[in-house]
Amino acid sequence: MDRQLYSMHNIIRFVTDQPILDKEWQAIHHFFQYVDRQWSRFDPASEISRLNRLLIGQSLTVSLPLARLLQRAIRYFEQTEHYFSPFLLEQQYANGYDRSFPFHAATEIEGTVPPDISPFLVEGCEVTRVGGGSIDLGGIGKGAAAMIVAQRLRKSHTRGLIEAGGDVIVWSDAHPWKIAITDPQTEQAIAEVRLRQGAVATSNRIYRSWKVGERTNHHLLSGKTGRPIETRYVQITASAPQLYEAEVMTKLAFQMTETERQDKLFKWFPNGRLLLMDDSGKMVAEEKGGQSIWTG
């Protein structure tokens, strides 16, 4: 059974062993409508936008799914020594990412330094601003939405796949799923991941990129500087038990050297694997212990 809907500026695809019942499908639709309304940085009425307008000391009660996501995002921010940061909205605007894609050119302004502590304190569903900085959930928000729905579908489907713009969650009690990884330039399949349970996230610096004069900026920012990451890698795919982990791993891997990935990334995510593609098209796999041949 294959069904689709549009949310978070992506086509979300659902593949299950048995048809998704109409009542269940309606609940999934309603959930993604909630996500589009409340997790968007482009909607001034969303919970995210209202949080970003808080002054220090002010609080806002948010929905339970968002509160849980913020807690997880803050935990990754602190765990990864700020290589991953969900608080780069002001820096995205400064680099020209101030509207929804697609666009091809933008104007850059002087940016501020990213926060080195979480600007928000989450207690239950109450979020209080305690410092400067603004939330941009980005890929981890998309991944969280897919994870929540996957948990729901697993109760009634023994085999399933959810695909959301480069993010994939799979589960199966039998044969593994085959997940194709495509070249960001040609969109031709270049590798394959085989998973029975787990998730895959792919990020590249091609799709969401734009011109600022003669220079090209992209949406992958350093959590340390707030500037587009300068890297020889064009695309990185991560596989991990949870989609949250895979999403964060791709952001870290773009910023780190191989030594740093071994010393830090695989210490934090020991069950993760990476497939890195550089600007020459060469691909190399990495996991805890060093580089390896990519076997899917």
Rank of each mutant, 00 (worst) to 15 (best):
residue 53 R to D: 13
residue 229 I to L: 08
residue 160 G to A: 14
residue 272 G to K: 08
residue 73 A to C: 12
residue 22 D to W: 04
residue 230 E to I: 09
residue 288 K to G: 02
residue 188 Q to V: 11
residue 93 Y to P: 01
residue 161 L to G: 00
residue 214 E to S: 11
residue 96 G to S: 05
residue 161 L to K: 15
residue 35 V to P: 06
residue 222 S to M: 10
residue 259 T to S: 15
residue 267 K to C: 12
residue 229 I to H: 01
residue 27 A to V: 07
residue 207 Y to D: 11
residue 242 Q to H: 15
residue 165 G to I: 13
residue 268 W to L: 12
residue 88 L to Q: 04
residue 70 L to A: 10
residue 50 R to V: 03
residue 292 S to N: 06
residue 17 D to F: 00
residue 288 K to F: 03
residue 54 L to V: 06
residue 232 R to H: 03
residue 203 S to V: 04
residue 37 R to I: 01
residue 62 V to E: 02
residue 210 W to F: 09
residue 183 D to E: 02
residue 95 N to Q: 15
residue 248 V to T: 08
residue 267 K to I: 15
residue 172 S to H: 04
residue 60 L to A: 07
residue 173 D to E: 14
residue 137 L to E: 01
residue 25 W to G: 07
residue 272 G to Q: 06
residue 146 A to Q: 03
residue 262 Q to V: 11
residue 31 F to V: 09
residue 24 E to M: 05
residue 104 H to P: 00
residue 220 L to H: 10
residue 152 R to E: 13
residue 258 E to R: 02
residue 180 A to Y: 07
residue 200 V to W: 01
residue 155 K to N: 06
residue 209 S to T: 05
residue 117 I to K: 11
residue 98 D to P: 01
residue 129 R to E: 08
residue 16 T to A: 08
residue 117 I to M: 08
residue 242 Q to S: 12
residue 227 R to S: 12
residue 253 A to H: 08
residue 226 G to C: 11
residue 45 A to H: 09
residue 179 I to H: 02
residue 25 W to T: 12
residue 268 W to P: 09
residue 116 D to Y: 10
residue 144 A to Y: 15
residue 81 E to I: 03
residue 133 G to Q: 09
residue 182 T to E: 14
residue 114 P to W: 07
residue 267 K to D: 13
residue 245 E to V: 04
residue 120 F to R: 03
residue 268 W to I: 13
residue 125 C to S: 12
residue 276 L to N: 01
residue 207 Y to M: 06
residue 199 A to D: 05
residue 97 Y to K: 10
residue 55 L to V: 01
residue 125 C to A: 05
residue 102 P to G: 01
residue 203 S to L: 03
residue 28 I to R: 05
residue 12 I to E: 00
residue 53 R to T: 14
residue 211 K to A: 14
residue 251 K to D: 13
residue 216 T to K: 11
residue 148 I to P: 00
residue 233 Y to T: 03
residue 229 I to Q: 06
residue 16 T to W: 06
residue 259 T to P: 00
residue 287 E to R: 15
residue 213 G to P: 11
residue 280 S to H: 10
residue 218 H to V: 12
residue 155 K to L: 14
residue 167 D to W: 01
residue 106 A to Q: 01
residue 92 Q to L: 15
residue 144 A to G: 02
residue 141 G to C: 08
residue 213 G to C: 08
residue 59 S to A: 13
residue 295 T to K: 13
residue 261 R to H: 01
residue 176 P to W: 11
residue 201 A to P: 03
residue 207 Y to K: 15
residue 35 V to C: 10
residue 157 H to Q: 07
residue 130 V to G: 03
residue 46 S to H: 10
residue 43 D to I: 09
residue 151 Q to V: 01
residue 132 G to P: 00
residue 182 T to Q: 07
